[in-house]
């Protein structure tokens, strides 16, 4: 209701000017705002977002990449969970991944791992949600995103949602 609508032409004009000037003015160094909870901005030099048609395979990342990694502690827990999983101890694997998530709750790699376990438990729905959560957490990390997308696609296929699975695999980012 209270949204302000400025005159179309004025905005367009401002916009074009801003965009043209942007090339230099935006590159001028600007200290990060102290109140911003966002981590230090990634390195400059990346290309702007351009959404390709869905049929085209995933293009270059829209943001400079950040790479998610496991710490030695969580890596060893993931290894342990995999061993438990392969010996059929799914509950054990689950509680081992619980421990890992307690250490790094925001690591998308762990959510991918948990999603894979859920698939192994035939809980495709939970696997799907883990995939979506991993995808959200992997924002800016192309490698992890494509792993998350693969998990998500597998989880969707397990629910016979093949069409959605295909879309997920062909899109650069979902959400």
């Amino acid at each position: 209701m209270a949204e302000e609508h400025h005159s179309l032409t004025r905005l367009a004009w401002l916009f074009i000017v801003a965009a043209l000037l942007g090339g230099c003015s935006l590159l001028a160094s600007q200290p990060a705002p102290p109140s911003s909870p966002v981590p230090a901005p990634p390195a400059p030099g990346s290309l702007p977002a351009s959404v390709p048609p869905p049929s085209v395979p995933a293009p270059k990342p829209p943001q400079p990449s950040r790479e998610n990694r496991l710490s030695p502690a969580t890596r060893s827990l993931v290894a342990q969970a995999r061993t438990q999983m392969s010996s059929g101890d799914l509950d054990g694997a689950s509680s081992t991944l619980d421990r890992a998530l307690r250490i790094e709750p925001n690591n998308p790699l762990l959510w991918i791992e948990l999603g894979r376990l859920r698939l192994g438990e035939s809980d495709a729905h939970q696997a799907e949600v883990c995939g979506r959560k991993a995808l959200a957490l992997a924002s800016g990390d192309q490698g992890t995103q494509s792993q998350a997308r693969r998990l998500l696609a597998d989880a969707l296929r397990a629910q016979r949602r093949n069409q959605e699975a295909q879309e997920v695999e062909s899109q650069p980012f979902v959400h």
Partner: peptide, 28 residues
């Protein structure tokens, strides 16, 4: 975003280019 007159606004802490004009206009 309508800009404050006389201010050279830019995304905070972000130096990535604003995108092509056509992208911006499409989005707008």
């Amino acid at each position: 975003l309508p800009a404050k007159p006389g201010c050279n606004a830019s995304p905070p802490g972000n130096s990535s280019p604003p995108g092509t004009v056509s992208d911006k206009i499409k989005a707008w």
